[in-house]
């Protein structure tokens, strides 16, 4: 594996390898609970907590965990942190906990978290693992906030519950409904792709799809 600097470990997950927008991990929460900035933030923070906690624990205990049972152990660790987060949220912010519902528990099966354990935390020193977790977690929060703002702004005319367009704004109800989630993420990814395409040197327009040349050469 290529050696990486501390800075890379931290920044990688925030933008260049953003878990949601680039790697398409953790789509379930990114779509299900981003109908308002508030929910998105709560979900992001809860996931952040679980990710950092389990990365810390996994990288600390990596020598003690036998290879054969590592996945089960990771899941166990993650589930523990999720349960803790679930109960804490319910005690501290019960309204938000009610809005997020079952999706807090479903952080357990967020492939992003398990993926970081398997790919990074189980192989690196504690400090690096924590940096990586913080970066990825912040990237996740950013993506969720983007989605949340877009959907709340269009779907409710407000941000964090503060109305921006005045009372006669006609909300696009669809944006806080499930289809709006798909469309918002789709539009975000299209926009990102479009920006990247404009930055990148213009590629040759191809009449035939790629791979034709390979086929013929083969």
């Amino acid at each position: 594996m290529r050696e990486t600097t501390r800075q890379e470990d931290l920044l990688r997950g925030i933008w260049r390898e953003n878990p949601v927008l680039i790697q398409l991990l953790g789509l379930c929460p990114a779509l299900a609970v981003t109908n308002s900035v508030e929910n998105a933030l709560a979900m992001g923070l809860a996931t952040f907590f679980v990710l950092c906690g389990s990365s810390l624990l996994v990288s600390t205990l990596k020598k003690l965990i036998p290879h054969e049972v590592r996945i089960s152990t990771y899941i166990l660790i993650i589930a523990t942190f999720v349960t803790v987060a679930d109960m804490t949220l319910e005690a501290v912010v019960p309204e938000i906990h009610k809005a997020l519902g079952a999706f807090i528990a479903l952080i357990v099966v967020n492939c992003m978290i398990l993926g970081r354990q398997e790919a990074f935390a189980s192989k690196r020193p504690v400090g690096r693992a924590l940096l990586d977790a913080v970066g990825t977690g912040v990237g996740f929060i950013i993506a969720l906030l983007l989605m949340g703002s877009l959907r709340e702004l269009l779907g409710n005319g407000s941000l964090l519950g503060i109305s921006l367009f005045g009372p006669s704004y006609e909300p696009w109800v669809v944006m806080i409904l499930p289809p709006g989630g798909f469309f918002a993420l789709g539009a975000l990814i299209l926009a990102l792709g479009w920006i990247q395409q404009r930055r990148a040197p213009r590629s040759q327009p191809q009449e035939w799809p790629e791979g034709v040349a390979d086929r013929e050469a083969a």
Binding site: L24, P179, G180, G181, F182, F183, L185, G186, I189, L190, G193, W194, Q197, S203
Partner: peptide
């Protein structure tokens, strides 16, 4: 279109 290939289009289809 190049931009929409893959995930973008899949999400739009899912939304539809």
């Amino acid at each position: 279109p190049e931009v929409a290939k893959g995930t973008g289009l899949t999400l739009i289809i899912a939304g539809s």
